[in-house]
Design a protein around this nucleic acid. Structure first.
Lengths: 375, 375
DNA sequence: TTGTATGCGTTATCAC
DNA sequence: GTGATAACGCATACAA
């Protein structure tokens, strides 16, 4: 062990004692002192592409390690005007039904050197308080997976805060969005079911302020009308298991019989509907009733359900959201873009997907058979 | 509209233009200028219990509103040494199987004026990189719901970083923890099942580095031994649906027959086991086989499963974690405390919970009947 | 490549 | 109650 090394280490431990007694943090000045260089040299060593000599760098890193020095992100953000934090605003609902979303978003940003500050809404009314916090914390951008008003979006603009809406759209506003085409998904599902001969549909929607569920419903209703089928019975739902059972019973009551197919605004409701149909009402699914959902959550794939559903490409959507936001933050991109992904159809086994033909006549509520519809 | 008001508003709009042209942020100096007071007066107005006159306060708030001024948390934290952020370190697994956890923790801290910065681990190996970020971002404390080594905990101490371990314990270390008593839960489950006459157990554990699953397993194994029952067959699992089916088959293979009961380290595995037993192997549950899990995740309550399981009081645990951490942060509490909650038994319908008696003889693999065991 | 000097936006300390 | 002034810890323009 060389003499100079000994000196450096002694110096470091002595300084650590001083720092501890003064009850302050280790700063770049401390490192500079131990390393025998200036504070700016230390600063440069922690900046990726800076011009520092090999020897200075080694000295500084040695001293930093001895002192357990780590740059203070708050102080850095003050001058760089970059906090390397992004806000993720998410409703509890989204959190419960897409548990992967948080992890995906978090990792996509981590890979881009940014961390996620979490803002959960338990009620939509909280949005004002939450936004006030978002401004305070100096995040570099926002991923909003919650319902925001036009006024709120306008505030983002006013504060020049980059934002990407996730599965939300806002007409008449140039704002970055990443969405799954829920209208298309609803249409696709209706088409497939109609092609298999279903005529009378029931639809269990989401809560009234959920744009996702309402778009799915709209797509299905549109397509059913285009195909000239009887108007579906539409009942509201609350996105939960119980809603599925309640919705099914409400539809049967209103229709005075069992429909050919039930389209649910989410998998959890579809599973609730399915369990009710099979275990409470004793209906054979899909022989007497087809049931379909949306989202392809994990349980939809379990043997007991094997649900017919549509999958959102969540990992790709999270990556797209991170890309859009980082482009605005780091490359000062100003053009806005709307990235729309298609849902992927999962056949499952809770819906008949081929025409029943003569093999199983009389399954529809109306007793009428539809020729294979054009998809 | 009074003359002075007009002046203030004009002044504000003019200043906003200047600020925009200089491409800088709105600061407390700007507000002070518009309000006609000093910068420190503005600062005081935004500090909850400060001494400011009614009129000054009104002037400042008016000016702040006109300028869309919000205090900069980064600058504040530099001097107060408080960022009002806490880190939540969580594995992807925990995120997937306890989706409520994130929301609960986030809201508990929001209620205490703190925000959650999210750190997800996709591999345990990431922990070093993640911790480096935790230090950088100057969080006030850490909730760790991931496996941390003794060395890592020691680093928390060294950096004087308050930390609460969530569902993790570390022997020989005085550190705040909030846990569910998983050993007790495992024992409780074994007792109940043994009391109902089950003799031969199979256990599907969690992955080998999951303390939660291993504690549950240990509790069950201990209790089974205490009751003098045959040694259970223990196989590892991976916390996922597929592990449940694989585990069941492995147990049957090793045992050369169907055991009386399977205890799974998590609900998801229990559900996988259940589906395999019923739909692949054609076993009647619970008549031919009892299956139990842990966690009481939402699907465990669905009609198709109605699982016998144990619930962790997650909301209370999240609140306790927030309390402990905030006490250390805000009241500089130095004593450490371990808060242990009991799991709540959920009867469900996938396990026989009363002695079979003479009604259904010969159900056990060994054909022997156990007298009601002492709980 | 390196060191000096300055500013980021706030809170805290002190006189007044 | 109010206003000047000094930190907080870092990055950067500039001179050397």
């Amino acid at each position: 062990m060389s003499k100079s090394k000994l000196t450096v280490e002694h110096c470091a431990t002595a300084l650590r004692a001083v720092i501890a007694s003064e009850n302050r943090r280790v700063t770049s000045y401390d490192v500079a002192q131990v390393a025998g260089v200036s504070q700016s040299a230390v600063s440069r060593c922690f900046k990726p592409g800076a011009s520092v000599s090999k020897t200075t760098y080694a000295l500084v890193m040695k001293a930093a390690a001895l002192l357990d020095y780590i740059p203070n992100a708050a102080a850095r953000s003050l001058i760089t005007r970059r906090s390397n934090m992004v806000a993720l605003i998410v409703t509890n609902q989204a959190n419960l039904y897409y548990p992967e979303l948080l992890a995906e978003v978090s990792q996509q940003f981590a890979a881009r050197g940014k961390r996620v500050l979490l803002f959960t809404l338990h009620r939509e009314a909280d949005v004002d308080r939450v936004l006030a916090d978002v401004w305070q914390f100096q995040v570099d951008g926002v991923i909003a997976a919650a319902r925001l008003s036009e006024a709120h979006i306008a505030e983002f603009d006013r504060r020049r805060m980059p934002v990407v809406l996730f599965n939300r759209t806002l007409r008449d506003h140039s704002v970055n969005t990443v969405t799954c085409d829920h209208v298309e998904a609803g249409r696709m599902l209706a088409s497939r079911l109609a092609a298999a001969g279903h005529r009378q549909f029931g639809i269990i929607g989401g809560s009234m302020d959920s744009s996702v569920a309402s778009e799915r419903r709209r797509g299905a209703v549109e397509r059913i009308a285009e195909l000239g089928l009887p108007a579906p019975v539409v009942v509201p739902g609350d996105y939960d298991y119980r809603s599925g059972a309640l919705g099914l019973k409400a539809i049967i009551a209103e229709l005075g019989g069992v429909p050919d197919a039930i389209i649910c605004g989410s998998d959890v409701m579809a599973i609730g509907c399915l369990d009710c149909a099979r275990h409470e009402l004793g209906l054979e699914v899909p022989q007497q009733l087809s049931v379909a959902g949306f989202d392809a959550v994990e349980p939809s794939n379990w043997i007991s359900y094997n649900l017919t559903t549509l999958r959102q490409p969540l990992p790709k959507m999270a990556a797209a959201a991170a890309d859009l936001l980082c482009a605005r933050i780091d490359q000062h991109e100003t053009d806005t873009e709307k990235r729309v992904f298609s849902a992927q159809f999962i056949e499952g086994a809770t819906a008949r997907l081929t025409p029943a033909g003569a093999r199983t006549p009389g399954l529809t509520a109306t007793g009428l058979r539809l020729p294979v519809a054009i998809m």
